[in-house]
Design a protein around this nucleic acid. Structure first.
Lengths: 159, 159
DNA sequence: TATTGTTATACTCTATAACTATA
DNA sequence: TATAGTTATAGAGTATAACAATA
């Protein structure tokens, strides 16, 4: 009864996962996700939808398959998301003349308005350094993650 | 038709997500996950189950709630997983004398055999440095992730 | 034949709340 | 009252395959 939580015998030996990169990445991603939605959860958008809306602002007319590839989500999933966003009146889908299989995505007026509302919140969130890291350490962490991903371009363009 | 894949106009401007820690962590985790199951996917265990089996080898008798907390998974999810593992004959559940609400987990013979088979594959996978990073960079990346998580102990024990 | 997107299905993990039995 | 675990339900994300239209 001395212990108020997590109590009992514990301390779990996490070996051989305690120092595994994949495990650390998973915990870090959970934490980062929680931080993200602590900041932005009040807008009732799902994570994927928020990402698509904000990215469409900088990529008008992008093909949904291309966007899916950049975000590492499956085309089937993107199709569902795009339909939902279309039904919500946030995006518009256009079939280009030169390839009538494809679909190009654009924000509607409502979507653009939402994107403008979202962007500052997203930017503010990202400017914040995690409490446990110095700004220099955060920069190093990001640089190493980009190198790990072979994503050398810090400008935000996929190769 | 010059482009064989990902083709078309593309290059997606990922701003303002391209340099976001959460976004980089997500991509890194997907990549790490793919690498993990490229190595270990032939054993038909689900990710969570594999983790529990291997950890139980080093934590006999751990309470399932404690394990759930350490792995950042919900107790409800752990309950389902534990039931499935029990039905598969891999783990044994014991109610301790001193607190009859609790459940302590142990590997059965079959579970221990499986764990012994899993462990070398897990260890080998983790010893491998990602191709794009030097060993020193990998060490730095892990150190920064641990610091980000306020997980200062490299030995693999949760605080 | 290959590609773009769609639909359908199923599975993994997550989130929540209501429930039991114990404490 | 609070805690450990269970059950049920819903939802998000993912994986897969079959399909239509187009290239």
């Amino acid at each position: 009864m001395a212990e108020t939580q997590g109590a009992t015998v514990d301390r779990v030996r996490l070996a051989p996962f305690g120092d595994a990169l994949g495990f650390l990445l998973r915990l870090a991603q959970i934490d980062s996700f929680e931080r993200f939605f602590a900041d932005l959860g009040h807008l009732d958008l799902r994570p994927g939808e928020l990402t698509v809306i904000v990215l469409l602002e900088g990529n008008p007319g992008v093909r949904q398959g291309v966007l899916a590839e950049a975000l590492k989500i499956k085309r089937a999933h993107m199709a569902k998301m795009v339909r939902a966003l279309g039904e919500a009146g946030l995006i518009r889908r256009e079939v280009p003349e030169d390839d009538r299989r494809a679909v190009e995505l654009y924000l509607t007026e409502a979507g653009a308005t939402l994107a403008r509302r979202l962007r500052p919140a997203v930017t503010a969130h990202e400017a914040r350094t995690p409490a446990t890291l110095t700004p220099a350490e955060t920069a190093t962490l990001k640089r190493l993650l980009r190198k790990y991903l072979a994503l050398t371009d810090p400008e935000g363009t996929t190769p």
